[in-house]
Design a protein around this nucleic acid. Structure first.
Lengths: 140, 140
DNA sequence: TGTCGACTGTTATGGGCCATAACATAATTT
DNA sequence: AAATTATGTTATGGCCCATAACAGTCGACA
């Protein structure tokens, strides 16, 4: 039984990503959040007033897909969407949103630290530059 | 506008994986295949007679999700599913499946090579060990 | 100032992959 | 022989991504 896929960086990248995301999802779901929602709370917490579009550009989420996510977070009382522009919606967290964002942040931080610690030290500092080189969307 | 996510290996891993998979998908779809199907053709080509379950274990695809994929490939005349065991189905490619598998293989190889070449040389050899360390499912 | 193009948000819709539960059947273990 | 395990199947849902079409707003520019 041969498995040549383990020599393919793209394939290993995919598998590593899927595994890591699944693990994070199980840790974050206990807060009642999806990983995407946790990320959004985090970004809005650090960038109050950011528009849906700008948020979407930062996270590579289409406007059309951002709408239901933001609406859901607002409906749960975690986020407010205030018209800033007539066409734009500025996002900011409610106190409950802030509180949940902090919990989510702690979970994510712990996870990312664990992830980093799994990498053998001699390879650790090379992962980020290598991944960023694979990722064309950084500059567009 | 702050974007602290770029310091998170898990997040960058996810983004890099998504981008890479999307790119591969656009290259493989012209063959009438999805990335998962291309992978399956490749594995079956190198492991004729492999059972659906064993294939699923290798690729981390649940039995329940493997069934429609394998059935689709069989319906397209690319693969045969021969009862080997009374309960198991042994998989093997048809001539058309072989031919398509070779084309898919060429596309994947080219893609993986390009991917590797994007990584700065000083980081190149560190990516695979780092990713494999993140990926717990290698041994279970 | 009025028009045209670009931007924003929304709705609708579909694709692709993953996960779980329940089931029937066959093999294996005890 | 009985109990457990393995395999394949069906059904169902979740999550994330993509595209098209639309209405409303802003900005650039003649």
């Amino acid at each position: 039984m041969r498995d040549p896929l383990l020599h393919y960086p793209g394939y290993v990248l995919r598998r590593a990503s899927t595994a890591a995301m699944a693990e994070l999802a199980t840790r974050i779901v206990v807060l009642g959040l999806r990983t995407t929602e946790a990320t959004i709370l985090q970004i809005v917490a650090e960038n109050p007033g950011i528009s849906q579009s700008a948020l979407g550009r930062m996270l590579d989420i289409q406007r059309a897909n951002m709408t239901p996510i933001a609406a859901r977070l607002e409906a749960r009382g975690l986020m407010r969407r205030l018209p800033s522009d007539g066409r734009s919606l500025g996002l900011e967290l409610t106190p409950e949103g802030q509180q949940l964002a902090e919990k989510a942040q702690a979970v994510v931080d712990a996870f990312e630290t664990e992830l980093t610690n799994r990498i053998p030290p001699e390879h650790r500092d090379h992962l980020m530059p290598a991944l960023l080189a694979l990722w064309p969307s950084t500059d567009g």
